[in-house]
């Protein structure tokens, strides 16, 4: 079963040659290129440029002030904290899931793979709601938590939970196809030569999948830092305490502090651009790695 839905992000193959009998008439070429680039300019380039232009619309000092303001700093800290919990958790889960799914055959495997994809199918708002229903004041565990003085909803644990839910599949769906493709011959050789399971994983499997793992982590991190819908349902929007960066952007925007909202938003846009650059670099490296592996296979 394909796990490639929602984020079909396998590295693109070396582009095919164009030309010869495949060449479209020049006017078709010009027309299609024009349509495609116009669409990209209108829907992708213009919004990205707008973020930065709006961020600096009141000058550099206003930009700086919006970012070093205490509530903004608190939002940045909280966003980093949430990512620092969600990313390692889901990365570890992804590696464990990929090991079980790619290296072994068992009944119900395709069901498990579909279940791992579930969080991508669920609306972010619904993802937040399920945790409110479990841990909220009127939720199943709410009274018990309240009696023990633990706050989950409208507090940091709820934000971490919702973010971890939303970003759950990223690393697993990246590693499962990769490890399936690589098979287990090398691991079996290591085991038969006397390596322990952990040694085999660390010395054989991990180096083979490190680029794919990193790729999954980059995408996971971008989503964890940028998640809005799920987090907004569980956060309670307490300034300086339960506002992540995207929520801080929303508050500033709704208070008609457009330039400040875009200043904080521009930090998130920088994160997005860095993510795209890293993603491209990793795809390029992975493309070369798989070409090299193929050549070794042919030799």
């Amino acid at each position: 079963m394909s796990t490639d839905w929602i984020l079909p992000n396998s590295p693109p193959r070396a582009a095919r040659r164009a030309g010869g009998a495949l060449a479209d008439p020049p006017w078709v070429r010009a027309l299609l290129t024009g349509v495609a680039l116009g669409f990209v300019a209108l829907f992708l380039v213009l919004p990205l440029a707008t973020v930065f232009l709006q961020a600096f619309s009141k000058g550099i000092s206003a930009f700086g002030a919006a970012i070093v303001e205490p509530d903004a700093l608190a939002a940045i800290r909280l966003t980093l904290l949430v990512a620092a919990v969600s990313v390692p958790l889901n990365a570890a889960f992804g590696v464990a899931a990929a090991w079980a799914i790619a290296k072994f055959d068992f009944r119900g495997k395709s069901l498990l793979v579909t279940a791992i994809d579930l969080p991508f199918a669920v609306s972010p708002v619904v993802s937040g709601l399920v945790f409110v229903l479990l841990f909220g004041a009127q939720g199943v565990l709410g009274p018990w938590l309240q009696a023990h003085g633990v706050r989950v909803i409208f507090a940091v644990p709820g934000i971490v939970l919702a973010t971890t839910f939303i970003t759950f599949p990223f690393v697993a769906r990246e590693l499962i196809p990769l490890m399936e493709e690589q098979g287990s011959d090398e691991e079996e050789a290591a085991i038969s030569l006397g390596a322990s399971g952990w040694q085999t994983f660390r010395r054989v499997t991990l180096p083979n999948v490190s680029l794919g793992l990193l790729y999954g982590i980059v995408l996971l991190n971008a989503r964890a830092m940028g998640e809005f819908g799920a987090v907004s349902v569980v956060s309670g929007h307490i300034r300086g305490q339960t506002n992540t960066m995207p929520l801080h952007v929303e508050i500033l925007y709704n208070e008609y502090q457009g330039a400040a909202a875009f200043a904080v938003a521009s930090l998130l846009a920088v994160l997005a651009v860095a993510t795209l650059v890293l993603k491209r670099l990793l795809e390029w490296r992975m493309g070369r790695a798989s070409c090299a592996a193929r050549e070794r296979g042919h030799a």
């Binding site: 984020l7 992000n9 693109p12 582009a15 095919r16 164009a18 495949l22 479209d24 070429r29 299609l32 290129t33 495609a36 680039l37 990209v40 992708l44 380039v45 919004p47 990205l48 707008t50 973020v51 709006q54 995408l219 971008a222 830092m225 940028g226 998640e227 809005f228 819908g229 960066m245 995207p246 929520l247 952007v249 929303e250 925007y253 909202a261 875009f262 938003a265 998130l268 846009a269 994160l271 997005a272 651009v273 993510t275 795209l276 650059v277 993603k279 491209r280």
Partner: peptide, 29 residues
């Protein structure tokens, strides 16, 4: 896939922007 033009790599990378840009940022923009 079929045509070659300057900046093709950048356009190709930009296609993923909606995955990478937080939705709230896209919304206000």
């Amino acid at each position: 896939v079929r045509y070659r033009f300057p900046g093709r790599g950048i356009v190709d990378a930009l296609v993923d922007l909606p995955f990478a840009l937080p939705t709230a940022v896209a919304g206000i923009t």
